[in-house]
Design a binder for these strands. Structure first.
Lengths: 113, 113
DNA sequence: ATTATATATCGCAAATATACGATGATATGT
DNA sequence: ACATATCATCGTATATTTGCGATATATAAT
């Protein structure tokens, strides 16, 4: 990447892309699944549930936390994580924008496909 | 990455992560927005709507097409793209899985958060 | 105090992603 | 046939992501 073109896009587009990036790894999907199931929220259990080293899982957790999708708190010797549903749902609903655009655009001068 | 751990995850998780990866760039978000608005579907117009070189836009279009989110057809001298809503909606609805898991899990032995 | 346990962070290597000029391929106009 | 226009692909430089061992940190147990 020669130059940083990121600033040339809309804030909305960057935000949605960043959310997608946070989800764009099977490990992070798997972590969210585990947390959604509420079977486990303790770091060690998450590590056992994944085919990755502890350091790697910790890094993935950090990324999910950085964008706000999960919250983490230290409980004595262990760390506990859980999904922030408010943030999660807000991001997911943003995908609806595309469908809304299509709905509003239909009936007008239609393009070629 | 020393080894390819991708195969150690579930197919569902990989598929959803791949979709997220396809969306995980402001340019590809912007392209989908343009196509959803149906203002333009011709490659050249998309290029003009983005702060990127033609070669780069073509690459992004290729990625979106590879995962099936958009369809492309050659119309004479130009190329025409449009969103495959069936694929798009199918992917988006997959995010509901997390919420469903949480719903089913609630009321049971709850974890720490 | 010492040891064990749980987790985060650092530093590095390998893999991917991004951007773009140059070039190739195909269709249109003259 | 030749020039032009549109778009895809190639090659390459740079940036980011991923994975993990080693290590730091902090709590708990003996």
């Amino acid at each position: 990447m020669a130059t940083n073109r990121k600033m040339d896009f809309l804030a909305d587009e960057i935000a949605l892309a960043d959310f997608a990036k946070a989800i764009a790894h099977p490990a992070r999907i798997a972590i969210l699944k585990l947390l959604a199931q509420q079977k486990s929220c303790i770091c060690g259990e998450i590590v056992e549930g994944l085919p990755l080293a502890q350091a790697t899982v910790s890094q993935h957790l950090k990324e999910l936390k950085a964008i706000g999708l999960i919250k983490g708190s230290i409980e004595g010797k262990t760390s506990c994580y859980c999904i922030d549903w408010e943030v999660f749902n807000q991001f997911v609903s943003q995908f609806g924008v595309f469908a809304d655009l299509a709905k509003n655009a239909s009936g007008q001068t239609q393009a070629c496909c």
